[in-house]
Amino acid sequence: MKIILKNICKSYNGRKVIDNLSYEFTPDKPVVIEGGSGIGKTTLLRIIMGLEKPDSGEVVFEGVSHEAVRFAPVFQNTRLIDKLDAPANVRLAAREISGDAVRAALIALIPKEELGKKVRDLSGGTQRRVEIVRAVLAPSDVIIMDEPLTGLDEGNARRAVAYIKENMEGRILITSSHSDLFEAFCETLLLK
């Protein structure tokens, strides 16, 4: 499968955010989108997921119809079901995976004693790691992560990136990040 961006343009309030961008994403080439704040990284990710429409240009999904493509996102802001604990949140998106497997995956990134707490009682950094595990475990063709390392300290960020890298399993990975941890194994798409 391949995602091809063809001459994507997007403006907000008369200001051009993305200007004639063409690019290809494939499973063997994870990509990290870099660029200053407000440069259009989130907008581009949302366009790829079909949550926003470009003003012109198109997103082509080669080898699969657009409707059939399954995305597993980590959004820019936290989006979890507050009143559920971390394993329950992950299982909502990954029903086929057993509870034990979900807990084992979560323990790789968050302390065991945090598993039983409702996610609204977890710190921002822990919530972020729950979202990362959810995106990785959910059945998908494309993993999209918008600043996934926000709120993580150096050690946790390293562990999170290693976890993502080990579990991509032939899927397309597109992430935006200010951290250089992704650069080690991702191609950089610099937005200007």
Binding site: R70, I81, L92, A93
Partner: peptide
């Protein structure tokens, strides 16, 4: 809309969307 988008992309079951996103 943020939770609705999340539920849609992760393909939550109808019952889960109703229970956890809309119901509260």
């Amino acid at each position: 809309s943020s939770l609705i988008e999340m539920g849609r992309l992760f393909r939550f079951r109808f019952i889960d969307k109703a229970r956890y996103i809309y119901f509260p």
